[in-house]
Design a protein around this nucleic acid. Structure first.
Length: 254
DNA sequence: ATGGCCAGATTTTCTGGA
């Protein structure tokens, strides 16, 4: 079973990329973020025609998440029951016995800002929900755009980014609290090349210069971590015309 | 060359992203 995550940065713009990528990478489950579409505009027929069921929750302009699956999706939950939120950032479903959460974590804008406080409160509530879901479902995975680089090696210039949004101590501590529930960063289960990132700024030729951050993650429960045989970042779609600024991350489970 | 973005709104500039 292959599970993947990709922040598409507007599904309206990126639908052709999504379909092209799925044709070349027929993963079992794909979690997408930043669809930026209300539910009535979600391209269900195109995704079904590609061989995927889909569960989604969206809004106009911002946020929006979906889970695509080649297998039946059951027990869909939209949003965190412990955190009433207008912003559509979370959706959960069960696929072949695996409980999946697709997450678009708050950006936070700047350390100390109101949006940063929202990010921290949102992450604390996420932890409560994840703890509950893990208790009910030992085979558990949470995939998405965390907007947090876990470690300095996940940052192209850790000195320039020291203490900044996505890299600050409170954010890394919050991610640590989440993984302390018994989750493992699938990417770090394996030897990886240096300077592997999942996002690059559109500006300043950041992709060409590999000035990126690794902020998109697949976290696995211990039972799934044992089944995990690979985790890779696919840089290819970032090279395509009019790309998302994020690129897919894929984990293979036995 | 250390720099020159992108998507969406109800657009002719702004917000938010990361």
């Amino acid at each position: 079973m292959k599970i993947a995550t990709w922040n598409v940065n507007s599904l309206k713009v990126r639908l052709p990329h999504l379909l092209q990528w799925l044709a070349a990478n027929p993963v079992d489950v794909l979690c997408i973020q930043e669809t930026k579409l209300t539910d009535d505009k979600f391209p269900v027929a195109d995704i079904n025609a590609a061989g995927y069921e889909v569960a989604f929750t969206g809004q106009k302009t911002y946020n929006g998440v979906a889970i695509l699956s080649r297998h039946p999706l059951t027990d869909v939950v939209r949003n965190n029951p412990h955190y009433p939120d207008e912003q559509q950032r979370l959706i959960a479903a069960t696929v072949q016995g695996v409980r999946i959460i697709c997450a678009y974590v708050v950006n936070g804008q700047a350390v100390g800002s109101d949006k940063f406080a929202y990010k921290m409160a949102w992450l604390a509530a996420l932890r409560t929900w994840v703890q509950e879901e893990m208790a009910a479902h030992p085979d558990f995975a949470i995939l998405g755009d965390y907007n947090i680089a876990p470690d300095d090696r996940d940052v192209y210039d850790p000195v320039e980014w020291a203490g900044a949004i996505h890299c600050s101590e409170p954010e890394r501590a919050a991610l640590g609290e989440l993984t302390a529930l018994g989750l493992t960063d699938a990417f770090r289960l394996f030897e990886q090349p240096e300077k592997q990132y999942s996002w690059w700024d559109y500006r300043m030729m950041a992709f060409r210069r590999n000035r990126g951050l690794r902020i998109d993650h697949i976290l696995l429960s211990s039972s799934l971590a044992k089944r995990c045989t690979a985790c890779t970042i696919d840089r290819e779609p970032r090279k395509w015309e009019q790309p998302s600024d994020h690129t897919p991350v894929i984990a293979t489970l036995d």
